[in-house]
C-alpha cells in the first residue's frame, strides 16, 4: 500500500493507504477529523470542501494518495469555539447556518473566494459559492455573512 505524508491542520501524519481511499475518508476515519462531512457522491454539494495547499477542493473527489505531501486545512484548523476565524464569526452573527451540515464547506468556499475578491459584490459571492449547496438558509444570510466576513477580514489585514 502506498505510504503518504500529509499535514492536516498543522499536524503531520504518515499513513499507509489503499489507493482508492478518498481524502475525506482519510480525514474522517483515519485521522478523526470529523468536522468535514460528506453530503453527496458527485462533487455537487461541497459539504466536504477543505483547503489543499491553500486552495479549496472537494475532499470526496480527491484520492488520499493525490494529497501526498500536501498541506490540508479543514474547518477544525480555522478556529475554535472560543476563538473563531472572522468568517466563522460572521456566519454566527448573520445566522448563516441552521442545521450546520453544509457550513464547513461553505465557510471554506467563502474564505477561498476572498483570496481574489477581498470585497465581493453580492453577485460575486453568489457565483463564488455555486459549488456549495445549502438546504436550510435559502442563502440570504450566507451572502450577508460573507460580506461581513470580508469586511472584518479586510479590517484585520489593515490593522495588522
Amino acid at each position: 500500500m502506498p505510504r503518504i505524508t500529509v499535514t492536516v491542520d498543522g499536524v503531520g501524519y504518515e499513513e499507509e493507504v489503499e489507493p482508492r481511499l478518498l481524502l475525506v475518508h482519510l480525514l474522517r476515519e483515519r485521522l478523526g477529523k470529523t468536522g468535514t462531512p460528506v453530503g453527496c457522491d458527485t462533487s455537487n454539494c461541497g459539504a466536504c470542501t477543505v483547503m489543499l495547499d491553500g486552495k479549496t477542493v472537494k475532499s470526496c473527489s480527491v484520492l488520499a494518495v493525490q494529497a501526498d505531501g500536501c498541506d490540508i486545512v479543514t474547518i477544525e484548523g480555522l478556529g475554535s469555539p472560543g476563538s473563531m476565524h472572522p468568517m466563522q464569526r460572521a456566519f454566527h452573527e448573520e445566522h448563516a447556518l441552521q442545521c450546520g451540515y453544509c457550513t464547513p464547506g461553505m465557510v471554506m468556499a467563502a474564505i477561498d473566494l476572498l483570496r481574489d475578491t477581498p470585497d465581493p459584490s453580492e453577485e460575486a459571492i453568489r457565483e463564488g459559492l455555486e459549488g456549495n449547496l445549502c438546504r436550510c438558509t435559502g442563502y440570504c444570510n450566507i451572502v450577508r455573512a460573507v460580506r461581513r466576513g470580508a469586511q472584518e477580514m479586510g479590517q484585520a489585514v489593515k490593522s495588522s
Partner: peptide, 19 residues
C-alpha cells in the same frame, strides 16, 4: 439572539451520526 448552537457547528465539533 445569536444562536447557542452555532459555535460547535462552525468549528467542526459536530456529532453527526456518521461521526
Amino acid at each position: 439572539r445569536r444562536r447557542k448552537e452555532d459555535a460547535r457547528l462552525l468549528t467542526g465539533h459536530t456529532r453527526w451520526t456518521d461521526n
